[in-house]
Write a protein that binds this DNA or RNA. Structure first.
Lengths: 166, 166
DNA sequence: GAGTAACTATATACTTAGTATATAGTTACT
DNA sequence: AGTAACTATATACTAAGTATATAGTTACTC
């Protein structure tokens, strides 16, 4: 979904070949989003088809060098400026909970308990990661992690509330 | 993503034909997730291929009646019990913010402002919707909306924090 | 009652995103 | 010399979702 635009962002910095984009992407997200190499090449094909990138030259090792075009830059800027919309059902737990209510599922208590457990694990993981980012000086990632932690805390609060009301 | 399992949940209640599933789904989500009719039929094809549903009979109006199988019920239960994982980058704004930092994008202030604006609109919309659900007695949906509101409030808090740090 | 808009109903073509896998060259190490 | 890991690209495939075609029915309106 955002892989396409992330590749444009990486190419905005400098021209790169496919594999370099894969490693660059993974470095950008600190390895938290492993990217299938195949997806890079198919995405590049589409970006080239849409004239957002072009590959005019090959480097010494005969690897295609991709360059962002003016249209590609504009597409990137447009994407960056477009606020993201969050539908109620972007979070799968909500639709799951809705379905559980619909089929009068009697395991809702354990659903909530397990969900709380995974969230707690996520909180621990992210708290540890935040410390790492703090030490390595990756302030942007530290900010993102703090945002995600606020999300998880909101989730916990909500799950505790609905647990009571059950 | 969860359409497949939502259809199983609807069929768990009673057998239905394709269009009935479309309207049933939209009723379940209170029209907040408009479903492309075509997706219902292709999803049903896959569910049938995987033996999660079967269509043995047609009704008087010659519409295929789909029924959930035992395997389909088990798949539904499994899905309901599976906690959902939330990767850091499920939220597109985070990766967008990361890309903006990477390209030294100088419009981060306006990105944040616009994002706050959309969130504020979403909060207003959901607050109104919550009242509606409260009046119509849809308590489950009211709970979901309250969860989403907690999310949006966490988003606002975070955006205000990073706005200061910029 | 003719026309037409909206709704019911199903199907298919197409696109995107993502997964799995095949292939081959290079580096590093034992 | 062998082999494991890494670099590098490509292709086949699947799932999810969008767009669109088609046709019958209902409802309303002039």
């Amino acid at each position: 979904m955002s892989v396409k635009h992330s590749l444009l962002a990486l190419l905005y910095e400098k021209p790169r070949h496919g594999y370099e984009l894969k490693t660059g992407f993974e470095a950008l997200v600190e390895g938290l989003w492993p990217l299938n190499a195949g997806q890079v090449y198919t995405t590049l094909d589409r970006l080239e088809r849409d004239s957002f990138v072009e590959s005019l030259s090959h480097d010494k090792k005969d690897r295609k060098q991709y360059t962002i075009t003016q249209a590609g830059k504009e597409e990137l800027w447009f994407w960056l400026n477009e606020p993201v919309g969050r539908s109620l059902f972007k979070d799968e737990f909500y639709i799951k909970f809705l379905c559980a209510s619909h089929v009068s599922y009697d395991n809702k208590k354990s659903m909530i308990r397990d969900q709380k457990e995974t969230i707690l694990k996520d909180i621990l993981h992210l708290t540890h990661l935040r410390k790492q980012m703090s030490l390595s000086g990756n302030d942007t990632m530290k900010l993102l992690i703090e945002g995600a932690l606020l999300h998880l805390e909101a989730d916990m609060k909500w799950l505790e509330r609905i647990e009571e009301e059950l």
